[in-house]
Design a protein around this nucleic acid. Structure first.
Lengths: 130, 130
DNA sequence: CCTTTATATGCGAAGATGCATATATGCTAG
DNA sequence: CTAGCATATATGCATCTTCGCATATAAAGG
């Protein structure tokens, strides 16, 4: 209940960038390493790294080092309200064509280890919707 | 399905400001005129006007002129995905103490014409939560 | 120790945006 | 017609963000 308006605004700010949203959508499927993000999104490595650093500072993701690779995953929300919000955004992104392509490219690389099957089209997710 | 990542990012950007979030939360209760927003949020009028203009440009709200007063309300989403997202944010804001105070001040001014009764505290909204 | 691969960061420039002023427009009243 | 108020818009300043390039750190292996 100590959620503050500024916190919500700050979260939105962190989400207010296409690159970060695409990264977030990828991470919603589970832990992913930087190189895979870099490849799946077809972005330069420094760009990806930079946005990951931003998300880390914002407390949205956490990093885990595994030898050469750095794996990122969504951080457990410090605040249920904010966590719920992130989940909503992540869900909304599953409806975005570009993001699905990203996910598909990731699966092709990692061998579809983490994300659930696509189930072409007929996702009955957001209830009645509209 | 033509939702684009940029559109989502743009929406987040529009929401990435405490003032706009507070306005949004107020408008979630129904149509409100500028002067009431200005009073309820205890903000200078130009500031409110500017942010309303921002929200209008972003397509989040629509304006209706009624003599002297300008009434703003949430715009029907051009995109169900984005609309759902806005609803999620608006809902999250109901958990924020400061926003509740804003709403209370608005009710005191308008005589609680639009928003539903407060039902002190025990809103069973987001399921289990936490 | 040196090389390779992966990741992170400094730096400078360009662009966008927020805020707070000040100015213009439209309406109402006397 | 003029005065006064409320709303909306334009300007200036400061800040922030992003991006590309190059470079620095970290780890693994020969």
């Amino acid at each position: 209940m100590t959620t503050r308006v500024d916190a919500v605004a700050g979260l939105c700010k962190a989400l207010a960038d296409p690159t970060r949203l695409r990264i977030l959508a990828l991470l919603a499927g589970g832990e992913v390493c930087v190189c895979d993000i870099h490849e799946a999104l077809a972005l330069t490595q420094p760009k990806v790294s930079r946005h990951l650093a931003y998300l880390r500072r914002a407390g949205l993701v956490t990093a885990r080092r595994d030898g050469l690779w750095m794996h990122y995953r969504l951080a457990p929300g410090p605040d249920p309200v904010l966590e719920e919000l992130v989940a909503s955004v992540a869900h909304a992104l599953t409806h975005v064509a570009g993001v699905r392509n990203d996910a598909a490219r990731l699966e092709r690389r990692t061998g579809a280890c983490c994300p659930p099957p696509p189930a072409s089209g007929t996702r009955r997710c957001c209830g009645g919707g509209r």
